[in-house]
Amino acid sequence: MTTNTKATETEVAQQLFEAYQTQHALKMADFETAVADEDAAYRVQAELTALKKQPVGGYKVSLTSAETQKMFDAHTPLYGAQVASHFLAAPAMVRLGQLMAPLVEVELVFKAKETLSATDSLTDLWHKTTVAPGLELPDSRFADWFPSLPKNLVVADAAVGGLVVYGEEHDTDQRFDSVDAVATVNCRLTHDGRELKTGTASEVLGNPLKSLHWLVGKLAEQGKTLSAGQRVSSGTFVLPPHLTAGHWQADFDQQLGAVVLDVSHD
């Protein structure tokens, strides 16, 4: 990596941070050649995370279905680090003005009960985590980002991280009889009482625990670990609608319960 390349990556991170602070959206066309590849994108993301000067509360995993991978011309998932203050316990209240161009995703949110290792099996992860129903609100610092934002810019922009709302947390191995059972969760997403979407956990790499497993391995490749207390929004069950003001609720079966989010106009 040359000095000029490093300077470019640092500049991209700074511009993303300024957009994050001011909510003035960037133009994709201005950054088409600024991030050379996925490795560069993760370096930009790391610099962006450092600029926020907040503890990392966990991660979000994106592109966990064949449909979303095709939309972004990708063949693997990707992740974004999320600051702790962006994980909200349900019931939550959010102002539209807190975000720029958010969507709504229905997810399972895992929390590490101890440090997770790249050598952990799916069964290990089943024992070492809690699980909660979740709503993720992906957002981007780029204008007109969905679904046309290039994959490397998605990664650089903290995997278009916004907010994650999570419901009641349960030991994963107590809520589910087996690893395979995690894939059978169904959900129903409503807005102001009207059903918008239904989905199933198997949309997430076949099983959301596989998404968590991928993340732990990817972090290990980069010399990072998923530590006790950190949460992971593991991937959406549904193609996301746009977030609007009103009452949002996601109801899950398997005794996971519901996640409630109220969004105001201001």
Rank of each mutant, 00 (worst) to 15 (best):
T2V: 09
T3Y: 09
N4I: 12
N4Y: 05
A7D: 08
T8M: 15
T10S: 11
T10Q: 10
E11Q: 15
V12Y: 05
A13D: 00
L16I: 11
A19V: 06
H24S: 09
K27D: 14
A29T: 15
D30W: 13
T33V: 09
T33G: 14
A34E: 12
D37L: 14
A40Q: 12
R43M: 15
V44C: 04
A46S: 15
L51A: 03
K52F: 00
Q54N: 06
K60R: 07
T64S: 06
Q69T: 02
M71S: 04
A74V: 05
H75L: 03
H75C: 00
Y79K: 01
Y79W: 04
G80D: 07
Q82W: 08
F87A: 07
F87G: 07
L88H: 15
A89D: 07
A92I: 12
L96N: 13
L99Y: 14
L99D: 11
V106I: 12
V109R: 13
E114Q: 15
S117W: 13
D120S: 09
D124H: 13
L125C: 13
A132W: 03
P133F: 03
L137Q: 00
D139E: 05
A143M: 09
S148R: 11
P150E: 05
K151D: 10
G161C: 07
G162F: 09
V164S: 10
V165H: 08
Y166T: 07
D173A: 11
Q174V: 10
S178Q: 00
D180M: 04
A183K: 00
N186C: 03
R188Y: 03
L189D: 05
T190L: 08
H191R: 08
H191N: 07
D192I: 11
E195R: 06
T200F: 00
V204P: 11
L205H: 05
L209A: 05
L215Q: 06
L215M: 06
V216G: 08
V216C: 10
K218W: 04
A220L: 04
A220C: 00
E221D: 12
E221N: 12
Q222V: 08
G223D: 01
S227Y: 06
S227A: 15
A228P: 11
Q230M: 09
T236E: 10
F237H: 06
L239G: 14
L239H: 13
P241K: 13
G246R: 08
F252L: 05
A258I: 03
V260W: 04
D262T: 11
H265T: 12
